[in-house]
């Protein structure tokens, strides 16, 4: 190990570790966002049976991101991952208008969970690369985000496919968790 590596290691050793939960319906793009956060290849993604976890290094933070499968039969397991969550990322397929109601209901239920109380919420309005995608403010309105009073929240338009907006989301996470 070189001196530089050693220094870097010591420095990253001081980084704050955050436990981040990545949730949303199936086909919202959670795994693609996870991989794109970790700068990995996103061309071979398969539906998540179970969960994926990755550690992402960002300036001042080590993010441990838990990406849990979104299919209906897996959703009952979401609650097993709530404990000690520092921040919740909720992913929406902005082009799948048929399921806005379903995703909105799931989110509402999540926000009522005791174990997630007060955890900041970042909503990714994903798939903005698609023509049929609803703009982020419309998604926010549909989800009733304006009514949230008990936590910090942010909506971020993004396309995990083109990587647009993902970094901005990461910046918001860093900003929000620094203040905490």
């Amino acid at each position: 190990m070189g001196l530089l590596d050693l220094l870097r290691k010591m420095k990253s050793g001081n980084d704050k570790e955050l436990r981040i939960l990545l949730l949303g319906l199936d086909n919202a793009g959670k795994t693609t966002i996870l991989k794109s956060l970790a700068s990995e290849d996103i061309s071979h993604i398969t539906p998540t049976q179970g969960f994926n976890i990755k550690s992402v290094q960002s300036p001042g933070f080590k993010l441990n991101v838990w990406d849990i499968g979104g299919q209906r039969r897996i959703r009952p397991y979401w609650k097993n991952y709530f404990e000690n969550t520092d921040l919740l990322i909720y992913v929406i397929d902005s082009a799948d208008q048929k399921r806005f109601e379903e995703t909105s209901l799931e989110l509402t239920e999540l926000l009522e969970e005791d174990k997630l109380m007060g955890a900041p919420l970042l909503v990714f309005a994903n798939k903005q690369d698609l023509l049929s995608a609803a703009p982020a403010d419309e998604v926010a309105k549909g989800l009733g985000l304006d009514a949230i009073r008990d936590r910090k929240w942010q909506i971020q338009a993004c396309s995990a496919l083109t990587n647009e907006g993902v970094k901005e989301g990461l910046d918001w996470i860093a900003k929000t968790c620094k203040k905490k």
Partner: peptide, 8 residues
């Protein structure tokens, strides 16, 4: 234990 162990 359950399906959540699929990845492992």
């Amino acid at each position: 234990k359950d399906i959540m162990e699929f990845g492992r």
